[in-house]
Amino acid sequence: MKLIDVNKARYRRHLNRVIAACIVSLALGSLGISQSLIALFPDPSGSHFHWNLLGVIVTSIAIGLTLKHFRGHSFMTEVVYVWELKKVLNRINRKMTKLQKAAEQGNVDAMNAIQYSYAGSRLLWQLDDNTIMMDELTVNQAQLDALAAKHNVTLSAENYKEELLNNF
């Protein structure tokens, strides 16, 4: 997955709308379904937990299917890109300990995977205004750059491919 520049204002606006639509849909859908089921099948004991739970489950599935259906819509471009980037970075982070050990031994693929992780994290944190972690990222990037210089390696996030993680 290539790292691309994302229009921050458009991303934030569209993400906020998607989140708001999901929240409203979940509230209205689950209440509507559960209240309909309670009206159709009242429980003399007054416990309607199972109908409420069913309403939430059915509405959650409907929201998930709707999001999946509209993934390719131009409105969702930035939002889906960031979701996919987070999945890729999560996969790298789960293997980070092995990647760092391999990078210390001079493994170029491991260093490029870490470089991609740092570049992707920087992009995400800038989109989310998470400046707290940027100082730590700068320190980690400097350590990686020193390691790359030690092993005479030129790092680029462009060199990362997801298949590389299968080796770790």
Rank of each mutant, 00 (worst) to 15 (best):
S36C: 01
T77D: 14
N130A: 08
E78H: 08
L144F: 10
E104V: 12
G64L: 05
L123Q: 14
N140I: 07
K8G: 02
D128G: 01
I57R: 03
V82E: 04
K161S: 10
V79H: 07
A62Q: 09
K86D: 10
W51S: 11
E163P: 00
F75V: 04
K68E: 13
T154I: 09
L85K: 06
A148C: 07
T77H: 09
F49G: 06
R10D: 07
F49Y: 10
L165F: 11
H48P: 01
R10E: 10
R17V: 05
G29E: 05
P42Q: 03
L137P: 03
Q143Y: 14
R17C: 02
M134D: 05
H69L: 12
V58S: 10
N159Y: 13
D5F: 03
Q115H: 06
N93M: 10
D129E: 15
E136Q: 03
S60V: 08
D109V: 02
T77S: 12
E104P: 00
T154R: 08
W125Y: 15
V108M: 01
N130H: 06
H73A: 11
C22F: 09
G46P: 00
A148G: 05
D145L: 07
L31W: 10
H73P: 03
V108L: 12
T138D: 12
I114Q: 07
H48C: 00
E84L: 12
I19D: 01
D5M: 01
H48L: 09
W51H: 11
I57S: 07
S121Q: 09
L89R: 11
I114E: 07
H73L: 09
R91Q: 14
R91M: 04
D43Q: 14
L31N: 10
E158H: 13
P44C: 02
L155H: 09
L85D: 08
V79L: 05
A39I: 00
I92G: 06
K101T: 13
F75P: 03
A148M: 13
K2N: 15
D5R: 11
R91P: 00
T59P: 04
V79I: 12
E104N: 11
K150S: 04
V18C: 02
E104Q: 07
N130T: 07
I38K: 08
L26M: 15
K2S: 11
Q100H: 14
M134Y: 05
N90L: 08
N166M: 06
V139C: 02
S34Q: 03
D135Q: 05
H48W: 08
T59F: 11
Y160W: 04
L37I: 02
T66D: 00
L124A: 07
